[in-house]
Computed example of a mutant assay.
Amino acid sequence: MNFIRTNIHDLVIIEPTVHYDERGYLSETFRQDQLEKFLGFKVNFCQDNESKSNYGVLRGLHYQSIPFPQTKLVRVLQGKVLDVAVDARKGSPTFGHHVAVELSSENRRQLFVPKGFAHGFVALSETATLAYKVDNYFKPQCDTGIAFDDPFLGIDWKLPAAELILSQKDKNQVPFLEVTHFDVNSYLYDEL
């Protein structure tokens, strides 16, 4: 596996090694030991989620608030998405910055999104199936989000606004500077 730090140090792109032959391919899509060695801390994933979206569906920007914030490991099983993570950690040198990465079933890239980040994606293919691991169980009372189109964030979703399809919940999210942000020191991980 190849681990690539983005311009926000804590967001990591993972490129699994794929072994092809005449039968097809084989790839290890997750290795806890290699991930933790690269990160330098432990991550204990406890739940897997999967969603399927049609072209133009934008889901986000979501995060789970205190006391159940979530780390995510995101990958695409089918299709292509633009995956976005926003640093919502007050006190972080990259507070309010974001990383946008194309994840697809062809490039097999994954994005590691630590606690303290809002996350979202838009489907760029006819359909896209996204799978992700989290390290805290879903708690509806802590489910919250940020406006996907907040000018402060300046996210280019790569599709015209007229082509975006959002839930009513995502249409009504609040601007980034109006949400309760994470304290950058609140979510330290257990070192190895």
Results as ranks from 00 to 15, higher is better:
Met1Ile: 05
Phe3Thr: 03
Thr6Asn: 04
Asn7Cys: 10
Ile8Trp: 02
Ile8Asn: 03
His9Thr: 15
His9Tyr: 05
His9Val: 06
Asp10Ile: 13
Val12Arg: 12
Pro16Lys: 07
Val18Ser: 13
Val18Gly: 11
Arg23Met: 11
Gly24Phe: 03
Leu26Glu: 13
Leu26Pro: 02
Leu26Ile: 14
Glu28Cys: 06
Glu28Ser: 10
Thr29Ala: 06
Phe30Arg: 02
Asp33Met: 02
Leu35Ser: 01
Lys37Val: 00
Leu39Cys: 00
Leu39Ile: 11
Gly40Tyr: 07
Phe41Asp: 08
Cys46Arg: 05
Asn49Ala: 10
Asn49Leu: 06
Asn49Lys: 06
Lys52Leu: 15
Asn54Glu: 11
Asn54Gln: 13
Tyr55Asp: 08
Gly56Gln: 02
Gly60Val: 12
His62Ala: 11
His62Asn: 11
His62Pro: 09
Tyr63Thr: 13
Tyr63Asn: 12
Ser65Glu: 09
Ser65Asp: 12
Ser65Arg: 10
Ile66Lys: 07
Pro67Thr: 13
Pro67Ser: 11
Pro67Phe: 02
Pro69Trp: 02
Gln70Arg: 00
Leu73Trp: 14
Val74Leu: 11
Leu77Glu: 10
Gln78Cys: 08
Val81Ala: 06
Val84Glu: 03
Ala85Cys: 15
Val86Tyr: 05
Arg89Glu: 12
Arg89Pro: 15
Arg89Gly: 01
Gly91Trp: 06
Gly96Val: 15
His97Tyr: 08
His98Thr: 09
Ala100Pro: 09
Ala100Thr: 10
Glu102Gly: 11
Leu103Trp: 12
Leu103Gly: 11
Ser105Leu: 06
Asn107Trp: 09
Arg108Trp: 00
Arg108Glu: 11
Arg109Ile: 01
Arg109Lys: 15
Leu111His: 05
Leu111Met: 15
Val113Ile: 14
Gly116Ala: 05
Gly116Ile: 10
Phe117Met: 01
Phe117Pro: 00
His119Pro: 07
His119Gly: 09
Phe121His: 09
Ala123Cys: 12
Ala123Thr: 07
Leu124Lys: 02
Thr127Cys: 05
Thr127Ala: 03
Thr129Gly: 05
Leu130Arg: 04
Ala131His: 03
Ala131Val: 14
Ala131Ile: 11
Lys133Gly: 02
Asp135Gln: 04
Asn136Tyr: 00
Tyr137Pro: 05
Phe138Ala: 09
Lys139Glu: 14
Pro140Tyr: 08
Gln141Val: 13
Cys142Met: 07
Thr144Ser: 06
Ile146Asn: 04
Phe148Val: 09
Asp149Leu: 01
Asp149Ala: 04
Phe152Pro: 01
Leu153Glu: 02
Gly154His: 08
Gly154Cys: 13
Ile155Phe: 00
Ile155His: 03
Ile155Glu: 04
Trp157Gly: 06
Trp157Pro: 02
Lys158Asp: 00
Leu159Trp: 12
Pro160Trp: 00
Ala161Ile: 14
Ala162Gly: 02
Ile165Trp: 01
Ile165Val: 12
Leu166Met: 12
Ser167Ile: 14
Gln168Phe: 03
Lys171Arg: 15
Lys171Gln: 15
Lys171Gly: 10
Gln173Pro: 07
Pro175Cys: 13
Phe176Cys: 14
Val179Trp: 01
Thr180Pro: 03
Thr180Ala: 05
Leu188Lys: 14
Leu188Met: 07
Leu188Phe: 02
Tyr189Ser: 05
Tyr189Asn: 15
Asp190Ser: 08
Glu191Phe: 07
